[in-house]
Design a protein around this nucleic acid. Structure first.
Lengths: 333, 333
DNA sequence: CTGAAAGCGCTTACAG
DNA sequence: CTGAAAGCGCTTACAG
């Protein structure tokens, strides 16, 4: 894999590398004669020249690379958001490096080091529990970072978040409007602020209204078995109107699987609202009422904030709060 | 974002950059005194030195970057395989660049140029229809490339594929064993060899046995509406035992959605086998019998072939055929 | 045991 | 209109 360089072109054309560089970069300022320009371009074409961006990066100290760290790229939600970020990044000439942290602070730290070693111009990250130190290191070196979806309680970072608290309140209000008498919230045992916001938005309303409610919290990871076991324990079909609220797509899939497996009818036997609109919901017998996250907008904002930081680093941590939307379908009676 | 360099360490330690480089790279050969070694390491730590891989890449002419081009990273199948590839790549010290081609030869070509410009050490690609020229360009420059899932009919490339033809034959045999009288195959209008293999494996058996069969072919892209319309046209519940075979996860989701929406029972009214085992299937009222692709194995093989090509480029296009597995559940009666 | 020097492939201010 | 030269941050063969 030997590739042509600017030097090869210069040699063949009988000009200096500087001239070649000017021509290839189409600089307006430097006036090169049309004839040499043509000659250079033709030779470049002939010997299949492609610029070495590594060399360019070294000289220019920018790589046009962006690191994206998500919990798990195989998760539908993150692969969808990755796709949106890819689209937006390409528009600005950036290429995406991807890494999955598995919610593990160690892996997260390794990934930030790997990416900063690769000289990415900036990173879009979902900072997991315990990742404060890794993020601080980045900030200390004035590394452009923006968090997305996740955010950190104790570190002020440019961030793209959802209106988690408010959307949970809306879900609650919607249930109440439908005279739900008992609520089961199914979420994670976690310290992650964005997930706690979803929980708190709900809980505050519950305590205000004095409603019966159960909170099921499972360990992050392979949630399926635990969700099934907990639902079996806490959910019975009764004459009281009961509703389930699933914290995210992973829990929703586990929960809906439990319902369909046990032939529990939605919304006849129980009402349901789930976070995230994923294709999978379409295979469930009832159209699920869900919370849509505006992925495209989140991606646009993340790239905008990051690009801003790359071009002009600032300590002021700008925030973009994107509004989720409750998409009404047929799973609440 | 000013970062410490080897030069800074050298200056502070009062040694040459060569010495610093030797220490940092822990070369056994060159014996540096313990005292300077310690000094250098301590300073590196203190000033938060991280090696600049861009500079290293330029000198070493390798980047430890691998480009991954898939049709769409937001598709469940590809995000799952991307995750497996990420895992395997990391083990060998590679980082992954990701791009989505949207089945578009132009985008595919742009991505290969982008990635080769970024000096990736090699690429794992799904070569779409019309991408022959782009792939040839890569090969001409002796660029390490391996195809995965997709493959090209007219270009001999190291490739990781599925036993597409054979697994379709197995599906057919399984249907026959269950006395299915009518078959509906739902696939794409496409030239993609790996998808045609799935189709042909099926068709050969059909012509051998002289069975009634319908072939529904939809345009690639947003398949949902077309799949629904075609199923409506070609599928009626009758006394004959009918079976559906879905070419991939996207078509399966559209098809299963149609069934659940129209309250068509599986397997009472119709039998079903779908390609790819995705989480979404668990929300369908019946456990779907599906074809499992061995993603981990495919990823392992792809990285192995690619790493081999990177270390020692060869024109012999090695192949790895990974066996799919028919996972029997309850959607065939 | 350690350093001076060349070079990877570019860009760009400066000189002519 | 064009070129010589410095330099980005590394590695490594060579010399001492």
């Amino acid at each position: 894999m030997k590739r042509a360089s600017i030097k090869d072109i210069a040699r063949i054309a009988g000009v200096s590398v500087a001239t070649v560089s000017y021509v290839l970069n189409k600089k307006e300022g430097s006036r090169i004669s049309e004839s040499t320009k043509d000659k250079i371009l033709k030779i470049a074409e002939e010997i299949h020249y492609t610029p070495n961006k590594i060399a360019r990066s070294l000289k220019m100290s920018n790589s046009k690379l962006i690191g994206l760290i998500v919990p798990d790229i195989s998760n539908d939600f993150y692969s969808n958001i990755a796709r949106c970020i890819e689209n937006e990044a390409m528009k600005l000439g950036y290429t995406i490096l991807i890494g999955s942290s598995d919610e593990n602070a160690d892996k997260f730290g390794k990934l930030t080091e790997l990416f900063s070693g690769q000289q990415v111009d900036g990173m879009i990250v979902t900072p997991v529990t315990g990742s404060d130190d890794a993020v601080k290191r980045l900030l200390r070196d004035e590394y452009p970072v923006v968090s997305i979806d996740y955010y950190l309680k104790d570190i002020d970072l440019p961030a793209v978040t959802l209106n988690n608290f408010e959307i949970s309140e809306q879900v609650f209000d919607y249930f109440i409007k439908h005279d739900v008498e008992e609520l089961i919230y199914i979420g994670y045992k976690t310290d992650l602020p964005h997930l706690l916001d979803r929980q708190y938005g709900f809980e505050r309303k519950i305590s205000e209204m004095g409603l019966t409610s159960t909170k099921i919290l499972v360990e992050m990871g392979e949630v399926s078995d635990e969700v099934h076991a907990e639902l079996k324990k806490h959910f019975k079909i009764t004459s009281r109107k009961t509703a389930l609220y699933f914290l995210n797509n992973k829990i929703a899939i586990a929960g809906l699987h439990y319902l369909v497996k046990n032939k529990i009818r939605v919304p006849e036997d129980v009402s349901v609202i789930a976070f995230d609109g994923i294709d999978a919901y379409s295979l469930f017998p009832t159209e699920i009422t869900y919370i849509r996250q505006p992925l495209e907008e989140m991606a646009v904002q993340a790239i905008k904030l990051l690009d801003g930081q790359i071009k002009n680093f600032s300590d002021e941590a700008e925030k973009a709060v994107c509004p989720a939307e409750l998409v009404i379908r047929k799973s609440v009676k």
